[in-house]
């Protein structure tokens, strides 16, 4: 299966910011709106994988990651099944972040269903 790749440090910024655009620069909301969601939509339409590489940044705040990935369900109305089918997160520097992101997705999905 072909894949599209995003490396946040290269394609977005090396110092990811807070949750919302109004809170400061390079927010999770901005990343989701301008890069993550458009690329994921492309991957879904072409039935391929979107690989997101988290390495190389100064560090991620919880809000940035939650808004970026949880927001795909909350704001962009995607389901966790579709996301898990087309999205692959990789990180060798902070491997626990992949697990955290999965947890944010599950949390957002469970709140959407309520």
């Amino acid at each position: 299966m072909h894949k599209i790749e995003i490396k946040i440090a290269k394609d977005f910024v090396t110092t990811p910011g807070p949750r919302y655009k109004k809170e400061g620069s390079h927010s999770g909301e901005l990343f989701r709106d301008t890069i993550l969601y458009p690329k994921l939509k492309e991957a879904i339409n072409e039935n391929i994988i979107l690989q997101v590489d988290l390495d190389g940044t100064a560090g991620y705040g919880t809000s940035f990651l939650e808004e970026s990935f949880g927001g795909l369900i909350r704001e962009n109305n995607l389901t966790i099944d579709v996301i898990n089918k087309h999205l692959q997160i990789i990180s060798s520097e902070e491997d626990y972040l992949c697990e955290d992101i999965q947890h944010y997705l599950e949390d957002a999905e469970s709140k959407r269903k309520k």
Partner: peptide, 14 residues
């Protein structure tokens, strides 16, 4: 700064 706090946490974890 938010970015600085996130960076400190990453450095501790790494």
């Amino acid at each position: 700064k938010y970015q600085e706090a996130a960076s400190h946490c990453k450095r501790i974890n790494v």
